[in-house]
Design a protein around this nucleic acid. Structure first.
Lengths: 285, 285
DNA sequence: TTTGATTGATGTGTTTTGTGCATTAATCAA
DNA sequence: TTGATTAATGCACAAAACACATCAATCAAA
């Protein structure tokens, strides 16, 4: 059983067509046909039922398709990570973070990293929700900053900071101070907010704010990119809610008015990390 | 990359000795040496540092050893399970259960199973704690009876029953009725109990019983086998606490005195089970 | 220092396996 | 009935894997 055979199998299980699959895999139909047959014979399992016109997965084949797809991905990702370990300190580390900390926490960290490890390449990615956990589980990411509090047994974590939320307003907006924030005024506003998702602490905190005024926001634009939101607010297209730390960007024509809601930021990394570089960089968090 | 190469690698990573490893794998030292080298070249990772006298894992090699061991095991276990699915209804299903239900729940289930599926082979196993979950995750077990309440997203569950605990006493023991159970008497007793483990509901319930009398048991014998415990109690070597359903065994010379503590029994099986036989048998639970 | 034993690497020839090309047999649609 | 499509297969060749034998490096004992 080879990883090649497994990926051939997965490809055919997707396409259910020998010629088409073999074309995509850059091999001949004959080679594919034989490899599948070899796999079936080695495992002593019928994977496909095939007539000269139709290819279908057997139930055992369908089971293996579902099981092997993530397994093969995991094998490859461990290999990639082992390569990184093998190369040593000149390697790359992958940091996932919410856009909102791109202006303070991340530059801070990167400054320290590049000072101590000038040759290290840092890759920044922004995924969210369940995908962040997949990222660090599959060794595709090394450090994760998240607003969400995870309780797992394979990660170590540290609370990095707690940040106030602020209303983000155009310079000349009618809301001037906290006392101006009342139900009636909020209901007249149009909001530019990030994608609000269930089970996401950040989203939930924002919703708690509106709930405290017994209202729901009228959302006119949705964006997950801080700078986009700031520009839209500046253009008078609506108001927003963002972590107060965004005010450090000094975006012109925009005011930040703190509200009594705050969100925490956590950093996560793998327990018993094998990559010495990652272990060292975690020290800087 | 072949599964064979991976298992060669894992074997060598354990032994750190080419000749010894090749002997265990029933191949020549030359074949092993070349396969490892081929793997290293394909992945472009140094797995071992070797002189003509010493073999050692590199840090990348050590990482892959830890990662690949469970992955390879999972690949094999999925294959085994696919074979079962492939064979269909004449297959085997594996049921894990605590010994305490061997006298009522299990025979009940087996009667119904063998009536409807006379050709099905049922394998009964008894593991406990975290191993139960591994069993069903790796497709090495199909149905699990457990006293423990698991909250997972890949299992379905059903509460099967709730069973009273009983003090198990020799026929002529001084404790005759519930009112006789007092702190002073309990402290004089020697107990025969199963292995009490943290995070195990059954153990915790037993400990709650003693706590309610502000005492801790003096344990003289430890056994996880119900019939052993019963015989020891009968022999006057101590008293015990067991699920009341054990009284159905009608072990002579032993009395069961119910106490107001109960434990629930849950059955678990995989969500979206692929094996039709298992799906059918779950109906009987 | 010398010698012998041990260990991993490697050269060689043979066997096994994988692949492409061409062809065949089965099926479907016109 | 005919032509097109599709998976299987015979064949030849190339690549890979293997056992055997040998080599070079290392270590321990004499």
């Amino acid at each position: 059983m080879t990883t090649q055979q497994i990926s051939y199998f997965l490809a055919l299980a997707d396409e259910l067509h020998y010629w088409q699959t073999s074309y995509k895999l850059n091999i001949t139909q004959s080679a594919l046909s034989r490899q599948i047959k070899a796999l079936e014979e080695e495992l002593n399992i019928e994977l496909f039922t095939r007539s000269s016109r139709k290819v279908e997965l057997t139930s055992a084949g369908s089971f293996l398709q579902k099981q092997w797809k993530p397994l093969l991905e995991k094998i490859y990702s461990t290999v990639d990570y082992a390569k990184k370990i093998n190369k040593g300190e000149g390697g790359t580390i992958v940091i996932n973070h919410p856009g909102s900390i791109a202006y303070d926490v991340i530059p801070d960290l990167l400054t320290r990293v590049s000072h101590s490890y000038p040759n290290v390449k840092v890759e920044l990615v922004q995924v969210k929700g369940a995908e962040e956990l997949e990222l660090i589980k599959n060794f595709r990411g090394d450090v994760i900053y998240s607003r969400h509090l995870y309780e797992t047994d394979f990660l170590e974590s540290k609370q990095v900071n707690t940040d106030n939320l602020s209303l983000v307003l155009p310079e000349k907006h009618v809301i001037r101070k906290e006392a101006d924030i009342v139900r009636k005024v909020l209901q007249q506003q149009r909001f530019i907010l990030p994608n609000l998702q269930p089970n996401d602490s950040y989203s939930e905190t924002i919703l708690r704010f509106f709930k405290s005024y017994k209202t729901t926001p009228e959302v006119c634009f949705v964006s997950d990119f801080g700078s986009t939101i700031l520009s839209l607010v500046q253009g008078g297209l609506g108001i927003s809610i963002m972590p107060h730390s965004f005010s450090h960007t000094h975006h012109p024509g925009v005011r930040f008015l703190p509200i009594p809601f705050s969100i925490s930021l956590y950093a996560y990394w793998r327990k018993e990390e094998e990559n010495a570089l990652v272990r060292n960089i975690v020290q800087f968090i």
